[in-house]
């Protein structure tokens, strides 16, 4: 890793700074995705492409529809209309677990740590293709013991990186809110995904650890992983994202590199209400 802040902005060469812009090598494409709850249209995205190998931030005011959009992309919820393609696979009618197995793993805004299981069990659960997950093979430990050891080893390494090793054998329910966020992120990485979707991963994590996690996320990108994350902290968005997508009232209103966003009029309007003409100081958010 270089000392200079690494970026992947070169991946976006020639991409216009406008909503729905086509990317050079999209890993995920959403088209015409719409979801209404009763009368409320929570998500109405005309078109969005996510660049492979980059860190893309999804920002927007509370209630903009970010989480709902995440649910739609990962098939935890079904859109009323529209299509989603992940690495060329149409996601229509694909179960959420299969989406994860295709290589797109998400975390949840409200953490879902498995409270009455130990931290290490939480982690090992993330391992894919486990032989011991078949009922009959489970009865014969010699069939899966070796694989289990490998998975445990990988889990321990990740716990180390996320500063959770000392909690290894505690129940996940005893973790603090920030630690749960960390555990959930680490657990998602156990799946070895091509793309991770993090819904406010850093909310409640202390600044020092946040910094090291940022580096870690960049490391993931440098290994070729695609990251899409929701974040309200503009400092963090500015620091690690290569590209920013802004949502408001269910629509995508702006796209571009982080520098271009803060001065975008549509974004300012969305955050502060229309007819506000000063440059955006999102840090106060």
């Amino acid at each position: 890793m270089t000392a200079e802040p690494s970026t992947a902005q070169h991946l976006f060469d020639g991409v216009p700074f406008e909503p729905g812009a086509a990317k050079n090598d999209p890993i995920l494409v959403a088209d015409g995705v719409r979801r209404a709850f009763g009368g409320l249209v929570a998500v109405d995205v005309d078109h969005l492409e996510v660049q492979r190998g980059a860190i893309t931030a999804l920002i927007g005011p509370n209630g903009a529809g970010k989480t709902t959009f995440f649910n739609l992309l990962t098939n935890f919820d079904e859109p009323d209309t529209g299509s989603r393609l992940f690495e060329g696979n149409d996601l229509a009618g694909v179960s959420a677990y299969k989406v994860a197995n295709l290589g797109m793993v998400r975390t949840f805004q409200l953490t879902k740590s498995l409270s009455k299981m130990t931290v290490i069990d939480n982690m090992c659960l993330g391992g894919t293709g486990q032989t011991g997950e078949s009922f009959f093979k489970a009865l014969f430990p010699f069939l899966w013991r070796r694989q289990e050891a490998e998975i445990t080893e990988r889990a321990d390494a990740l716990l180390e990186r996320f500063k959770l090793s000392h909690m290894r054998d505690e129940f996940a329910g005893t973790l603090s809110g920030g630690q749960r966020k960390l555990l959930e992120m680490a657990r998602a990485l156990m799946v070895k995904p091509n793309m991770v979707m993090l819904d406010e991963p850093m909310a409640g994590v202390n600044p020092a650890l946040k910094q090291s996690l940022l580096d870690h996320v960049k490391g993931l990108r440098d290994e070729g992983m695609t990251v899409l994350f929701v974040e309200h902290d503009m400092d963090m968005v500015q620091e690690i994202s290569d590209w920013v997508v802004v949502m408001a009232e269910g629509r995508i209103i702006a796209e571009g590199p982080p520098e271009s966003i803060a001065s975008n009029q549509a974004v300012i309007d969305a955050y502060l209400g229309a007819h506000h003409d000063s440059a955006l100081d999102l840090e106060a958010d």
């Binding site: 299969k98 994860a100 949840f108 498995l114 299981m117 659960l125 993330g126 391992g127 011991g132």
Partner: peptide, 21 residues
Amino acid sequence: SPWGRVLRAIREDEDAARSLG
């Protein structure tokens, strides 16, 4: 076994288990 681990995970939070494939 890992099979039992998946069951327990589902008991704790089914969506989490699904999000992990």
